[in-house]
Amino acid sequence: MAKLLIISDSHGLTNELIEIKKRHQQTVDAMIHCGDSELPYNAPEMNDFIKVKGNCDFDSSYLDELTEEIQGSRVFVTHGHLYNVKMSLMSIQYKAEEVDAKIACFGHSHVAGSFQENNIVFINPGSILIPRRRPEPTYVIAEIEEKEMTVRFFNAAGSEVEELAAHYVVKSK
């Protein structure tokens, strides 16, 4: 089993990142930031995050994308601007398939949501500063069991946004 904290588009927030990390760091296997933190790569608030570069990140230490093996699940992480996720999710889907990911995490659009396509679960945690299409800032806790995944969204204060929750069956390839 793996449990992931996924956050994106914090755009300079520091106290909120610290609070969310404190709230969950003892109960998750990995913490992922999908870019646009606007913080230096080595900022204390970004410590412990698997992190990528967004279009508003200018520290050259960030990678544009990465693929990580977390508790047996291959996770592809990118911000999304290089895949034009505001226009179509086809490019990011092709990339996730290419790297054999079970999970693809991205941000950029600030629109919270998840869906499954070709046995890959795509997760956009929304933004904890400037949400779009929803009133509340959000982040995600994803729990992966062998053949099942639950994606739960939370507001910045830690209360679950139940209508966004989703459950997926993930088949072995």
Rank of each mutant, 00 (worst) to 15 (best):
K3I: 05
K3A: 13
K3F: 05
L5T: 03
L5N: 01
L5M: 08
I6F: 10
I6S: 03
I7S: 03
I7F: 05
S8K: 01
S8P: 15
D9N: 10
D9C: 07
S10V: 02
H11V: 10
H11C: 14
H11R: 08
G12N: 05
L13W: 04
L13K: 11
T14C: 14
N15W: 02
E16M: 05
E16W: 03
L17I: 04
I18C: 01
I18Y: 02
I18N: 02
E19P: 01
I20F: 04
I20Q: 01
I20G: 00
K21G: 01
K21Y: 02
K21V: 01
K22V: 09
R23N: 06
Q25S: 11
Q26A: 14
Q26N: 15
T27K: 15
T27D: 15
V28T: 05
D29M: 10
D29Q: 06
A30F: 15
M31N: 01
I32K: 01
C34W: 10
C34P: 14
D36P: 12
S37H: 04
S37N: 03
E38H: 07
E38K: 11
E38N: 10
L39W: 00
L39T: 04
L39V: 04
P40Q: 15
P40C: 15
Y41S: 09
Y41E: 12
N42L: 14
N42M: 12
A43W: 00
A43H: 02
A43K: 03
A43I: 09
P44R: 10
P44L: 13
P44M: 12
E45H: 02
E45W: 02
